[in-house]
């Protein structure tokens, strides 16, 4: 465990807690893409299959349970909570995310570390996580100005993967045979997707204006 990875896990946790706070405090999920939340639930379930087979550390197990639990709770809230579900605006959340699932699964069938059930699903979850934010970014663009908590959610989510890239560089330099190419390349793609969002977030923060994304 290095400081970059720990910082990444903490910002990832913060992003999920910010989202839960927003939904719980405002009893509203306007501006949040249910499709992105569903993709994240699939990412965590597909990636943490080893939860009960490989014990790595208490920290690892607890964090996996928290991530799976929170992502399923958010999807449950947005789909079934009698108050929150009415604030979900499905006609702006129109990204066809099933194509993302299919594309990532096909890619995982061809590009993986080992051709085993767990490894293919792990690669699938890595690819899917890289693109899972797309429905949310499309929704932000469509709805123009959005509330701060949603923007902070995306911001922390981007920061988490940026920390992980520093973690992979650090581990590559310090551990002899550390090769995590699939996660590193997908992580770079993921962080690049956020880069333009960060740019507009920084510009709006500098001008102390509301976030304006190009249509």
């Amino acid at each position: 465990m290095n400081i970059f990875r720990f910082a990444g896990d903490m910002t990832h946790l913060i992003s999920i807690l910010v989202l839960l706070l927003k939904i719980y405090a405002t009893k509203s999920c306007s501006g949040i893409s249910l499709k992105t939340q569903e993709l994240y639930a699939i990412v965590f379930v597909a990636r943490y299959l080893d939860l009960f087979t490989d014990f790595i550390s208490v920290y690892n197990t607890v964090m996996k349970l928290v991530f799976i639990g929170c992502s399923l709770a958010i999807v449950w809230c947005m789909r079934l909570h009698r108050v929150v579900r009415r604030t979900y605006n499905k006609d702006v959340d129109t990204f066809r995310h099933y194509f993302l699932v299919l594309g990532c699964f096909l890619l995982a069938l061809f590009v993986h570390e080992k051709f085993t059930f767990q490894e293919v699903l792990w690669a699938f979850s890595i690819y899917l996580e890289a693109v899972a934010i797309l429905p949310q970014l499309v929704l932000l663009q469509r709805s123009g100005n959005v509330d701060n908590l949603t923007v902070q959610y995306v911001f922390f989510l981007g920061a988490y993967r940026a920390f992980y890239i520093l973690n992979w560089i650090y581990r590559y330099l310090t551990e002899p045979h550390f090769g995590r190419w699939i996660a590193s390349v997908a992580g770079l793609v993921q962080t690049a997707l956020y880069a333009d969002f960060f740019y507009y977030y920084f510009i709006s923060w500098k001008n102390n204006a509301k976030l304006q994304l190009p249509a």
Binding site: M1, R5, D9, H12, D50, D54, I56, S57, Y59, N60, M63, K64, F67, E113, W122, Y164, N167, E175, H177, F178, R180, A183
Partner: peptide
């Protein structure tokens, strides 16, 4: 935690 093991990251 087992270091360098394949899937020790979240």
């Amino acid at each position: 935690e087992r270091n360098g093991s394949s899937k020790d990251e979240l």
